[in-house]
């Protein structure tokens, strides 16, 4: 159920973010979710697209350093405390969350949350047992 996320190394300079996104758009790849982590020197652009395999391939072909990581995506209720509840459930059962980002789904009253955790299988089991809906790569691509 884990979904693939493409991470891209970007330099901390003007245009460094737009360039890889342009490469994706020119290849006809649509963005579904995006987050950026940055330091004073460099940034890590994390994206989920409607075709992650192709996205990683196209970016590598254009000389970008990128990696594909498995992450977990789940539905959180789109109401105050929705995300906090979800994260508490995980942390209470010993799953470490490295980073998280969320976006509001176009349909229904929920947000989709992408999580990089130390144990995908365990995180998924806990979420299922807590009646939290997991989101598949196909769900995201279909948006």
């Amino acid at each position: 159920m884990a979904i693939r996320q493409v991470s891209v190394f970007v330099e901390n300079r003007k245009g460094a973010l737009a360039d890889p996104l342009r490469v994706l758009s020119e290849a006809g790849i649509g963005l579904r979710a995006l987050s950026i982590a940055d330091t004073s020197d460099f940034g890590i652009l994390r994206i989920i697209t409607d075709d992650n395999t192709k996205a990683a391939f196209v970016l590598s072909e254009h000389g970008y350093v990128c990696s594909v990581t498995d992450v977990v995506a789940a539905c959180a209720d789109d109401k105050p405390g929705g995300l906090a509840d979800l994260l508490t459930t995980l942390s209470e059962q010993g799953v470490d969350v490295e980073y998280v980002y969320a976006f509001v789904a176009k349909t229904g009253n929920h947000a989709w949350v992408v999580m990089r955790v130390n144990d995908n299988t365990e995180a998924e089991r806990i979420l299922r047992e807590s009646n939290i809906t997991l989101v598949s790569e196909a769900d995201i691509a279909a948006v």
């Binding site: 996320q5 991470s7 190394f9 982590a37 940055d38 330091t39 460099f42 890590i44 994390r46 590598s60 350093v65 990128c66 990696s67 990581t69 490295e98 980073y99 990089r116």
Partner: peptide, 12 residues
């Protein structure tokens, strides 16, 4: 220059 071998999706 960054290389794919040393790149990781986390800042840490």
């Amino acid at each position: 220059e960054m290389t794919p071998d040393r790149f990781c999706d986390t800042v840490k």
